[in-house]
Amino acid sequence: MRLGGGLLVVLAVGAAGAGYWVLAGVVLAAVVAAVVSRLPALGDTPLERYVGAFTRLALVVVQAIVFGAYVVPAQPAYAGAGLVLVVAVADLAGLRLPAALTRWLTVVLIAAAVVLIVLCAVVAPVVTSTPIGTPSPAAVVVSALITLPFLLPVAPDRVSLRALTLGGLAVLVTIVALVQLGPDRLGLSATSIRDLLYAADAGQLQPLLTVVVVLATVPATLTTFTDARERYAPERGWESAAGIVLALAAALFASPYAVLVAAGLGTVVELVLRARNRRYRVAHE
């Protein structure tokens, strides 16, 4: 579910910096996600706990920012912070999403992505004069960095297949978005996916997009927050409270770019720690 909300802002931020080469960044992230998908989970050392919690709180803030920007555009920061607060209260109250509901939501979001791809594929794009330009390695790496956290599978089963599926969807959505809007319009604002519907002659689906955004962000925010608290701060009340305050402040004041880069850097550090754990296990077998 993370990918649904993440793509709504990742493509805009990536295109603003890398232009057409955001596609190379998404492909690179998809390849990396597939390669590292079978690494063991983080351990329980203090460093691993803090890195895991930091990364997931950053993802919570990303989902909250997307929710605010798309659902309550008049007051996006307050709406995003409100979602963080509601999710924190719901988690502490013991609310958990049934596994069956999570699976159905994933199916719905995949179907929504497929519909978007088909709509954009059957409508001729407006001719754009934006040149492809010379690739900037730094911009491509940043695009991959901010995309990677949303392509890593959460569930441990069949992770390679999940990573390939998520990566393929992300690449296809990136292609149709670039073809229909071009990098300039795609990177114009954090909510440029709304423009993508208009470009595909599907402006009447804007209310449906709002529903999809809610389905993509609210459950993902809850499950990610719960994962952060239960796995990396169990029975540590002060750490949970500090995480909530940090997430609220970030939702209110941080830019999407800053939060995405923070999530990406946290993910890279987490992967390094997971690779270290794998080498340790191999060495002791």
Rank of each mutant, 00 (worst) to 15 (best):
L152T: 08
V212K: 06
I175L: 15
T217M: 06
A163R: 05
I193W: 06
V176K: 04
L161W: 10
A199S: 07
V140M: 07
L169I: 13
R185T: 08
D227R: 14
I175R: 08
L222G: 10
R162V: 12
R194G: 10
V214R: 04
Q206P: 00
A220F: 09
L205M: 09
S189G: 01
L161P: 00
P219V: 11
V211C: 04
L205E: 00
F225T: 14
V154W: 09
T147G: 08
P207V: 13
V142S: 07
L196W: 02
L197G: 09
A155T: 08
T221Q: 05
Q206Y: 13
V142E: 14
G168T: 12
T174R: 06
G168V: 12
V179I: 15
L169Y: 06
D201L: 12
S143L: 03
I146T: 09
A228W: 09
P234Q: 03
V171W: 04
E230Y: 00
T224P: 07
L151V: 03
V218P: 00
A163G: 05
P149L: 09
D184M: 07
L151H: 04
T210E: 13
A139W: 08
A170I: 07
V173Q: 06
D157H: 14
R231W: 01
R158G: 15
T165E: 14
V212W: 01
V159K: 14
L215F: 08
I146H: 11
Q204H: 11
I175F: 10
F150Y: 14
G182H: 02
T217V: 11
G187K: 01
L197P: 05
T210H: 11
L172N: 01
V140G: 06
V179L: 13
A190C: 00
L215E: 02
L188D: 14
Y232C: 02
Q180I: 13
V171Q: 06
T165R: 15
V214E: 01
L145A: 11
T224S: 15
I175E: 07
L222N: 12
L169Q: 05
L161F: 04
R162S: 15
T224V: 15
P183I: 02
L152R: 12
A170R: 04
T223M: 13
A199M: 03
S189I: 00
V211Y: 00
V173E: 07
V176H: 03
A216V: 09
T210D: 15
V213N: 07
P183G: 08
L215H: 05
E235A: 15
L181Y: 06
A177W: 03
L169C: 11
R185N: 05
L178Y: 10
T210R: 13
A220Q: 12
F225P: 00
P156F: 09
P234L: 02
I175D: 08
Q206S: 06
V173P: 02
Q206K: 00
A144K: 11
Q206D: 15
V176W: 03
A220H: 07
A233Y: 12
L172D: 01
F225K: 03
G187T: 11
P219T: 13
L172E: 01
R162K: 14
L164I: 14
V179H: 07
S192D: 03
D195T: 08
V159C: 08
A199P: 01
A216I: 09
